[in-house]
Design a protein around this nucleic acid. Sequence first.
DNA 1: CTTCTCTAGGTACAGCGTACGTAGAAGCTC
DNA 2: GAGCTTCTACGTACGCTGTACCTAGAGAAG
Lengths: 249, 249
Amino acid sequence: MPSSKPEPSIRPDPTNRPTPPEAPELIWLRPERTGRGPRPAHSRDSIAAAAIGIADTEGLDAASMRRVAAALGAGTMSLYNYVPKKEHLLDLMLDAVAAEYRLPPEPSGDVRADLTDLAHQQLAIFRRHPWAPALVLARPGIGPNALRYTDHFLAVTAPTGLGGGLRMEAMALFNGFVCQFAQYEQTAAAGAKWQAEMVGYLGQAAASGEYPHLAQAFATAGPPADPDQAFDRTLNRVISAILAPTEEG
Amino acid sequence: MPSSKPEPSIRPDPTNRPTPPEAPELIWLRPERTGRGPRPAHSRDSIAAAAIGIADTEGLDAASMRRVAAALGAGTMSLYNYVPKKEHLLDLMLDAVAAEYRLPPEPSGDVRADLTDLAHQQLAIFRRHPWAPALVLARPGIGPNALRYTDHFLAVTAPTGLGGGLRMEAMALFNGFVCQFAQYEQTAAAGAKWQAEMVGYLGQAAASGEYPHLAQAFATAGPPADPDQAFDRTLNRVISAILAPTEEG
DNA sequence: CTTCTCTAGGTACAGCGTACGTAGAAGCTC
DNA sequence: GAGCTTCTACGTACGCTGTACCTAGAGAAG
């Protein structure tokens, strides 16, 4: 907000355009095309694809408005006709990625199996798009494809007998776990040097005597767990937590 | 990386300084003070406190190197003597916040009660520092205070009989849940307009017939749940998942 | 045809992280 | 104490970011 906008006393506004009544903040509420004027040279899908391509290969930070516009062969500011804010570009990217789910038309009937499949698909998607988990964790994000996923999750968990609200909470817990796991994998894989330092630091901390339980945990810990095994192990716990009967108290 | 550094052919280096052998990337491995030279005008603690003050009141983005330096009465670049990268400033902030835990010297013996207390403290901290959850979710972050927290968690969960590695996984799940919850609270509280649009959009999506289970969930959902109740409800499930015996298969 | 709305894209600005270099203070060795 | 060394403070400058604003011109609606 730069210096509160001087508000010029004379504002002729000869065009008398009625100040389009508050464009919605949510990009999914803005029509992609109104039908007037020249037809756009790009689409939301192509823009999202370009941005995802950059982010996949060079990291999320590389997917700047300039870079994405250049990848499309467009001028930087032209992008703002499609995407009023950078935030919205991220929304488009996330929803485009959510289109990668292969959701069966109907639940199989085995809740645990269906949820396990969903989690594995999600992890695979996050491994393909390393920038995604951070984004999902940061913002709710509700595009058409994300809604399709949500709908499927609700269908799958219908047999639990839980109400809609509780199943939404369960989904948040479920997604949160997968995101977090993927995110951790990414940061761990990112820097070998970082990881080596971390181990050294933790060892030193354990040796200091200040953190006895940490030291003991280190001592009793076996070899580093296989990531996929660790994922399934905790996933099973999460699913159990979801399936467990509501035990108040 | 600007044009790969011309590499001047003549590099006399009369001082013959031995190129300090790779300063560690992890800030906790760098000594705060080496003893030589003039004594610093600031400390890591005061820098973290200044940054936290700005971030608490104006948001994380406002806590730029320039702003923090100005708040300390220092020149911008002076900050880089204490904090070699912006990342490290974030590390300092997170660890300073982790100092707010009030951890009892010994576990009470009631695992569920201890974990519940820990979660409530964490949520309270995150409510005081709205920028914190996003940061915790984005990076592991291991300062002395975070280690104290970890040690306490390990102590509290010792009676479960789980090994060190499994208890670390449990902690990740536990922390992840609290972070995510706090994060969601923040984004929800941030924009009334955003929330209103979201509800409208979801309602419209439900009415479209494309998402039948979502529609049904909406229909059967009661009044919006009290946040604290929802937190405790899911927290209980998470704790149960942690305490459940390891059931392979 | 006229009118209006839309799109494309250039220019410009404030703010970001930070590389680099200089000046001088404070500790160590003699 | 002298002198060397190593640290701190900080100004300047660069490349990058998101994006406000403006001008042309394309093309549908009346």
